[in-house]
Amino acid sequence: MRHKDLGIWRTWSWSELAETIRAYAAGLQQLGLQRGATIAVIGQNRPAMYWTILAAQWLGAIPVPVYADAVADEMAYVLDHADVAFAAVQDQEQVDKLISIQDRVPKLRTVLYD
């Protein structure tokens, strides 16, 4: 996998990806994410967001990708209907949106901020 950030290319081998995703999955499991649970993935197309999806799938959980430019009301509808209990977000803007809708997404209890 390759990703360009601030003009600099970063490359990961398949074995590095597998190790990263396995460790990430173990961390998510320690936080309580388990098979059948849902986790929102909110952010731009960046490696960490894809790693979240893969780590969730590794555990048998269900990733729920949400557009980073979705307004809070749209996000609340999607997250509540998907019974999301976890969220992995890219930046403070996404955290602020989740805080503003926390009363409308009662099952959301854990937010991971990249």
Results as ranks from 00 to 15, higher is better:
residue 76 A to V: 02
residue 46 R to T: 11
residue 65 P to L: 01
residue 97 K to T: 02
residue 110 T to N: 05
residue 114 D to C: 05
residue 112 L to N: 03
residue 53 I to P: 00
residue 106 P to S: 04
residue 88 A to R: 13
residue 76 A to I: 04
residue 35 R to E: 08
residue 81 H to K: 12
residue 63 P to G: 04
residue 27 G to F: 08
residue 87 A to K: 03
residue 3 H to N: 06
residue 77 Y to I: 08
residue 27 G to K: 15
residue 8 I to R: 14
residue 31 L to N: 08
residue 35 R to I: 05
residue 102 Q to M: 03
residue 71 V to T: 06
residue 14 W to P: 09
residue 98 L to F: 00
residue 12 W to G: 06
residue 97 K to S: 01
residue 73 D to S: 15
residue 45 N to Q: 06
residue 85 A to S: 11
residue 65 P to K: 02
residue 20 T to V: 07
residue 7 G to Q: 11
residue 55 A to I: 15
residue 88 A to T: 06
residue 5 D to N: 12
residue 62 I to L: 12
residue 114 D to H: 10
residue 112 L to Y: 11
residue 21 I to N: 05
residue 87 A to T: 03
residue 100 S to V: 05
residue 86 F to M: 03
residue 4 K to R: 09
residue 31 L to H: 11
residue 15 S to K: 10
residue 11 T to S: 08
residue 3 H to V: 15
residue 22 R to Y: 14
residue 32 G to W: 14
residue 20 T to Q: 06
residue 13 S to L: 07
residue 8 I to T: 15
residue 58 W to Y: 14
residue 74 E to C: 05
residue 84 V to R: 00
residue 12 W to A: 13
residue 101 I to L: 08
residue 42 I to P: 03
residue 100 S to N: 04
residue 27 G to H: 06
residue 34 Q to H: 15
residue 103 D to N: 07
residue 37 A to M: 09
residue 16 E to D: 11
residue 114 D to G: 10
